Simulated assay, not measured.
Amino acid sequence: MNASAPLIRLAGITKTYGRGQAAFQALKGIDLEIAQGEFVAVMGPSGSGKSTVMNILGCLDTPTAGSYEFQGVHVERLTRDQRALLRRHFLGFVFQGFNLLARTSALENVELPLIYRGEPAASRHAAARTALQQVGLDGWERHTPGELSGGQQQRVAIARAIVTRPEVLLADEPTGNLDTHTSREIMELISSFSIEQGITVLMVTHEPDMAEYARRIVHFVDGRVDSDRINGGVA
């Protein structure tokens, strides 16, 4: 990939659900470029298209029209299996609801993406332990989600997202279920991955104070980019 080229480029992206009179256009021609290592917060009211565009960026959905380039590859032209490989090898996901397996230890939860990639047990264990250490959970490997606080569960979820060393971390309302103090701890952790490891972070949030951790804030309204600005007051 050309060093000056963006990691991600969306051009003329539209997304329409339904047909005929029931058709709803969720995205109405999105143009967006994201550079390697950026921390971008995506904001907007309910129904603005922010979640739809994140699903497309995460290869969980496909656009109706337009182009999505990832490292110069046209993602919209890939097959379902090829998109799954892109997700598995380049993307990490953090969700509001943690999405941890309840009866499974923290270590085993973090190992899951590596199991899907077919990595041997010894390297899986080592990588998962390292990821848990990176999120401040050294010594908590054998605890199940029910034995952890909400903040600790989200740290496990973040460790699971970074254990594959992804190019991009996609976070959907990562602090939505957390109190203010814990939210700030989680945001500082996510921010550190962008600053220290060069991971590109794309985060959907409705909380302005959480968006302040990002270097750039993109605001969606009615399926379009309403504003795209560099954040001068990073928390």
Rank of each mutant, 00 (worst) to 15 (best):
P63M: 14
T104I: 11
R124M: 10
G97W: 07
R80G: 06
S191Q: 15
Q134L: 14
F193K: 14
D138C: 10
G97T: 09
D179G: 14
R142W: 10
N177E: 15
P120Y: 00
K15G: 02
G12P: 05
V218G: 00
R129C: 08
Q21F: 06
V234P: 09
T79A: 10
A131G: 12
L169M: 12
Q134G: 13
H74T: 07
H206L: 13
Q25R: 13
F95Y: 12
I158C: 05
A106Y: 00
A161V: 06
Y213L: 14
A171I: 07
V40L: 07
I13V: 13
T205Y: 02
I30E: 04
H143Y: 00
G49D: 05
V221P: 04
E147I: 00
L60I: 14
Q133W: 00
T130V: 13
Q36G: 04
E196T: 08
R83F: 02
V221T: 09
N2D: 13
Y116A: 12
H125V: 15
V225H: 11
I34A: 02
I13H: 10
R155H: 06
G92P: 07
E207N: 15
A41R: 03
Y68C: 06
G233F: 13
L86E: 04
S149H: 02
L32T: 03
A102L: 08
S4Q: 13
E33T: 11
G136I: 04
S191H: 15
A171C: 14
G198Y: 04
A26K: 04
C59Q: 04
W140T: 04
K50Q: 07
Y116S: 10
G136W: 01
I30Y: 07
S227F: 06
L112Y: 04
T205I: 10
E196I: 09
L57M: 12
W140A: 11
Y17G: 05
K15T: 07
R124S: 10
E119H: 05
V42C: 10
M203D: 08
V53N: 05
A102F: 06
F220C: 08
T200M: 14
Q82A: 09
A65C: 15
G176Q: 08
F93Q: 04
R19Y: 01
R88H: 05
A157Y: 01
Y213R: 13
A126N: 11
F220W: 03
R77Y: 02
H219F: 11
A5H: 01
A235Q: 07
G37H: 01
V225N: 04
I30G: 01
G49I: 05
F39C: 08
G92E: 14
A23I: 07
H219T: 09
L86F: 07
L57E: 11
E167I: 06
S46G: 09
L148R: 00
P166C: 06
A159T: 06
T14R: 15
T144G: 03
I190Y: 03
G223F: 02
W140E: 03
S191C: 14
S48E: 08
A126M: 10
K28H: 10
G223E: 02
T180G: 13
S149F: 02
V75Y: 00
L57I: 10
H74P: 08
I230N: 11
A235V: 06
R160G: 09
A128H: 00
I217P: 08
F24S: 12
P208Q: 03
R165T: 13
A5W: 00
V42Y: 00
K50D: 04
P45L: 05
I56E: 08
S123H: 07
P208V: 04
L189C: 15
A106C: 09
V204H: 06
